[in-house]
Design a protein around this nucleic acid. Structure first.
Lengths: 254, 254
DNA sequence: TCGGTTATCGAACGACGTTCCATACGCTAG
DNA sequence: CTAGCGTATGGAACGTCGTTCGATAACCGA
């Protein structure tokens, strides 16, 4: 849901960025060639990534979806790396747009929490996003915007610049790390069928308990939690630990 | 250093896992074919990954390094995914071995800190490790061991099982996230030449300051820290925020 | 010595990212 | 209307990758 195309501007490297017509339903008469656009290319790339993960994004598959040839895509992006960059920035633009309101009146830490949760929500069904960020952070415009937004909250707290820098970096790293962990969790078959979900967690719990308790006392200890936990809830729990540390550092109560 | 083969057992899919001779310097006379071993395959795979990253690990390159053919590797591993799994587990075995002593007498939180730092140290020069963990955590033996070790420390604190579970998950996610962020940071040319390091950070700082201060007030605010920060130090700063949150939750002082 | 298990080798296949060039489209000048 | 040019498209072709396969060498107990 929410597939719109916010902020396609923010022009990057000088080459393309034109191709901006697309003409809606101009598909009449004797058109022999199809017509693309940067927006369409990026949108379809995101759709492909969402459906089949990073290995699912293929120039040939993307070309087929756009109804054209492979070479055409290279008019808009110069490599697969840039395609991934634009796709990541595209969904980040949504996060930036949806969090435009935070930070004005609230508690700065609560605002930071809200930003982190919005970022997490964007990555939760997109393992490829987390995977991408761990190798190329902060170079794209909307990534920088999000980073800065978080930092602005910490500027309202009584901290040194260094503490603010470390705090934002920690929150970002945590979100990316969580986004990474989950995603491939349901092996392959639980993705669609809903009924097998319970069977899967039961199997997983059993596998945990099958380990030698002497070797893995903790895993036995938390086997029940492991089987029953909610990912989003656990994300928030860890985030609150981090934020509690920041509150403490800033001399705030509770 | 430390190339031993800890926990090579834990037999996975039923096929290989033998091939355990290697015979040292039996290279004499009329040997027409070379002889490999699981340990050699995994060790060379790690070396290849360390030298050229994940794209550098190629069945053909690995075969050339082992002095054999491509097909031979498939006798030991059934896919590249399994090869990565074994490589990751191999370096994790070192972490497990080097942290065997922690946890007995110290403060549990300090012990957890030590475990996290050891894990971080193993990933700091291996971007591929962080990248791997974000898509497949906790399924390999040494990964589970490390996870359990961390949990054992929290079992010594006054927390609910759920809080312990969330705490370990948070620390793991944070480490993976940090390991992810850094790694590709020095673009391509700073990896070898030492002199250009200062020039690179200066350029980076300049790029930060070139942004509009109205749009990115925080990035301007921390531009100096950005240019001068030490990765390991920043990792510890964020980790301490997280641990402070855990301490607070457990009712511990400071 | 011999048969069967264990292990190695490299050709071959299909899919991928990328390059290249021919060609069609949309516009403006004449 | 048309000639021409820059913009954009299409798909064949190249080299590399992961993976499969069958031939074959090495090893080993009888």
């Amino acid at each position: 849901m929410s597939e719109d195309e916010v902020a396609d501007g923010a022009a990057r490297s000088g080459s393309a960025e034109t191709g901006r017509r697309r003409g809606g339903a101009r598909a009449a008469s004797g058109r022999r060639r199809s017509s693309h656009s940067m927006a369409a290319v990026v949108a379809e790339a995101v759709a492909l990534l969402d459906e089949a993960g990073e290995p699912g994004l293929t120039f040939r598959a993307l070309a087929a979806r756009l109804g054209g040839g492979v070479g055409s895509i290279y008019w808009y992006v110069s490599s697969k790396e840039e395609l991934l960059e634009r796709a990541a920035d595209h969904v980040l633009a949504d996060v930036v747009a949806q969090t435009a309101h935070v930070g004005a009146t609230e508690d700065p830490v609560a605002a930071l929490r809200e930003l982190a949760i919005a970022f997490y929500a964007a990555t939760v069904h997109r393992p490829w996003l987390g995977a991408y960020f761990l190798q190329d952070t902060g170079t794209q415009p909307n990534g920088l915007t999000l980073y800065d937004r978080m930092g602005q909250q910490l500027m309202r707290l009584d901290l040194t610049p260094r503490q603010r820098f470390d705090g934002v970096a920690a929150v970002m790293a945590y979100v990316v790390g969580v986004a990474a962990d989950r995603g491939q969790d349901p092996p392959p078959e639980v993705r669609d069928g809903r009924v097998e979900r319970d069977a899967y967690v039961a199997t997983f719990r059993a596998g945990l308990l099958a380990l030698d308790e002497g070797d893995f006392p903790f895993l036995h200890h938390v086997a029940e939690e492991f089987a029953a936990h909610d990912d989003a809830e656990q994300f928030r729990a860890g985030l609150d630990l981090l934020l509690a540390g920041i509150r403490l550092q800033a001399g705030l109560p509770s």
